[in-house]
Design a protein around this nucleic acid. Structure first.
Lengths: 229, 229
DNA sequence: TTAAAATGATAGTATTACTATCTCATTTAA
DNA sequence: TTAAATGAGATAGTAATACTATCATTTTAA
């Protein structure tokens, strides 16, 4: 069985849909490669165009600017991840197992899954860890939010919050805990690799230790929780 | 009694020490203002120079580039915060009270404290919330780390980890929990103001709710914790 | 007092982030 | 079948950004 995963993206994320043309798909493929290699700051449309064998203006036909391209990549990632989570949690009823699988999917290394040829999910995961928060840490975050550019992120957050409430419907901060899980699953991995003294994982570079930390954090919070009033 | 707080900064953070000249202090003062107003991306040395009534090249005498200036500002902030924390926790022996005060200092709004004329701590706090993580989310984070540019952040993290161990010496992830506290104290405030559906604080814009969430997260983790083995 | 060092202003350059316009191929509609 | 419309990508710009080099003046230090 061979399936082609197609993620429906918000129209405002791009000028022209990159999934529908050869150049568009090359833009996605090579921007992931270049951003992962050299970081978002040193990434330019000029360099990307040279890499592809096209021109700067050609890229601008698809994306307004490089920041919009980053938002597109993050939105794609969160949509893909929500699909993956939904898929892996299918037919599981125990919220404990659901949460554990979920944390695993968030913090563990991603293996490129060939569901889309032109997206290397493993590299994209590394981009989200190192550059993802730059998508919303801007002065125009509220306007971008009005254009629903962050909807995939918020959807994933809602999904997680729902599972938290399944586990304990009295828990008072399901959404904040959900966004904490998502952000920490990434940030603790980043710290482990780059600023290890901010973690307890030394230079082990073992993502499984981050999974254990977050599981502990989450379950002790929701297990022993009582309404404060 | 009038005291002048002087924070000793790492020499590698600047080309020339900005605290020692009029122009240097103006650079700090007005960069805080400009970055807070327009965001780090749109901040340039040209605009800063015009604001001050100096020139671009003049600014470059003090800071290699705008990213180094951001690292300087964050380092200054973490040093200042560590001093504040140490000061407020002085003579307190109960680690529960210590942790509560600490979370309050991290997440609550900062009032400009006049300890330094040219640094508006309240604005700087807002910069740290919205731009702080850009200081280390770069491809050259490891080299910057070798130059000890993030030492103030790491020191604060160690301080918090120490208090966590005072509370429960069996807790297995004091450093990761410390960095989680610091990052979440900021990020949840950012989300509350800009992407409220990622939190449970609605549009209340009340920092006290973030304080309560983090207190709950921290104490349920370290209170009910047992070594897993 | 004089040499060195620091201070700041002037004038550049290379790169970045775009925009406007052009050509050429393909689709579509009469 | 053919002209109009559409869309693809290339070419050639501009304004702003991120610096650098040089010079002229002031401060400092021996």
């Amino acid at each position: 069985m061979e399936l082609q995963l197609q993620i429906k993206m918000n129209e405002k994320l791009f000028v022209r849909n990159p999934e529908q043309t050869e150049l568009g798909r090359k833009i996605i493929q090579f921007s992931i490669q270049l951003i992962q290699e050299n970081g978002f700051e040193s990434f330019t449309f000029k360099k990307l165009a040279e890499e592809i064998g096209s021109t700067e203006a050609g890229i601008y036909r698809y994306f307004e600017n490089k920041h919009r391209l980053l938002i597109y990549l993050t939105a794609w990632y969160w949509s893909w991840l929500e699909f993956r989570v939904t898929f892996h949690l299918n037919n599981i009823s125990d919220p404990t197992i659901k949460l554990k699988k979920l944390i695993q999917l968030l913090a563990a290394n991603v293996v490129d899954d060939d569901s889309t040829m032109y997206v290397n999910e493993s590299l994209l995961h590394q981009i989200i860890i190192a550059e993802g928060s730059k998508a919303y840490l801007t002065k125009h975050v509220s306007e971008d939010n009005k254009d629903r550019l962050f909807k995939p992120y918020k959807d994933l957050c809602s999904l997680i919050a729902g599972i938290i409430l399944e586990y304990n419907s009295d828990y008072t901060h399901p959404r904040s805990l959900a966004s904490t899980i998502i952000e920490m699953a990434h940030l603790q991995v980043f710290f482990m690799h780059n600023l290890p003294s901010l973690t307890d994982f030394g230079e082990s570079k073992n993502e499984q230790l981050v999974v254990e930390y977050i599981e502990d954090l989450v379950f002790s919070s929701i297990r022993h929780h009582r309404r404060t009033d």
